[in-house]
Amino acid sequence: MEKIKALFDLMELITKDTSLAVEIQLAENQPLDYLNQFDGTLQERGIDRPIPELPWLALVDGLARRNLLVELDWKEDPEELIAVCQRLTENHSESTEIKTTLTSLEPLTGDDIEEFLPVLNRYINKHGIQLV
């Protein structure tokens, strides 16, 4: 349990969904059962046997299945990042204000993604949201 405590801590910052904690524990304690249960997703990643990173992947894939995470390539355009942020915050209590904030950033989208990420983070942080 101590090995995966940091994963639980991170998970709790994002969601209180206890079923995700169960999946992470399964990946740690019974990796073959986890592999059998989520073989489709893991096969896409080229994983067909237990690996040390399996609990981490359980967290990442579990968040993605719950629409709480979107994996982006480092080469993505800032416009794509804005669109993803809008989708991820649709159910946020301040979704209208967040959408307005994100729309106001569109003139800055010509910037390189590495330069744009900190700008985007500063703007959405005002709404209690953090890019990870």
Rank of each mutant, 00 (worst) to 15 (best):
M1C: 05
K3F: 04
I4H: 01
L7K: 11
L7C: 04
L7H: 07
D9A: 08
D9C: 02
M11L: 15
E12F: 00
K16F: 00
K16A: 08
D17Q: 10
D17K: 14
S19Q: 13
S19C: 03
A21K: 15
E23V: 02
I24G: 07
Q25M: 10
E28T: 11
E28A: 11
E28P: 05
E28I: 02
N29Y: 02
N29D: 13
N29R: 14
Q30G: 00
Q30H: 12
L32C: 04
L32V: 14
L32K: 15
D33A: 13
D33K: 07
D33G: 04
Y34P: 12
Y34C: 10
N36A: 13
Q37H: 06
Q37A: 12
Q37T: 15
F38W: 09
F38G: 06
D39I: 09
T41M: 08
L42C: 06
Q43D: 13
E44Y: 00
E44L: 13
R45L: 15
R45N: 06
G46A: 02
D48T: 14
D48E: 10
P50Q: 11
P50A: 07
I51Y: 01
I51T: 13
P52W: 03
P52K: 15
P52E: 06
E53P: 06
W56Y: 10
A58E: 11
L59D: 11
V60R: 06
V60T: 09
V60N: 02
D61H: 10
D61W: 03
D61V: 09
G62T: 10
G62D: 07
L63W: 01
A64T: 15
R65K: 12
R65S: 03
R66N: 11
N67R: 07
N67L: 03
L68A: 05
L69D: 06
L69P: 05
V70D: 04
E71W: 00
E71P: 08
L72A: 09
L72V: 15
D73K: 13
D73T: 13
W74C: 07
W74V: 12
K75I: 07
E76A: 14
E76M: 09
D77H: 10
E79Q: 14
A83I: 10
V84I: 14
V84R: 05
C85Q: 03
C85F: 01
Q86K: 14
L88K: 04
T89A: 08
E90A: 12
N91T: 06
H92E: 08
H92F: 03
S93A: 06
S93P: 09
E94G: 06
S95P: 03
S95Q: 13
E97I: 05
I98R: 07
T100F: 00
T100E: 14
T100L: 12
L102R: 10
L102H: 11
L102E: 13
T103V: 13
S104V: 04
S104T: 14
S104A: 15
L105Y: 06
L105D: 02
E106D: 07
P107R: 10
L108C: 02
T109R: 05
T109S: 03
T109V: 09
G110R: 12
G110K: 14
G110E: 08
D112N: 12
I113T: 13
E114S: 09
E114T: 10
E115I: 11
E115S: 11
F116A: 06
V119E: 09
L120K: 08
L120S: 04
Y123P: 01
I124T: 05
K126T: 11
H127G: 03
H127D: 04
H127A: 06
I129A: 01
I129M: 07
L131R: 08
V132A: 01
V132F: 00
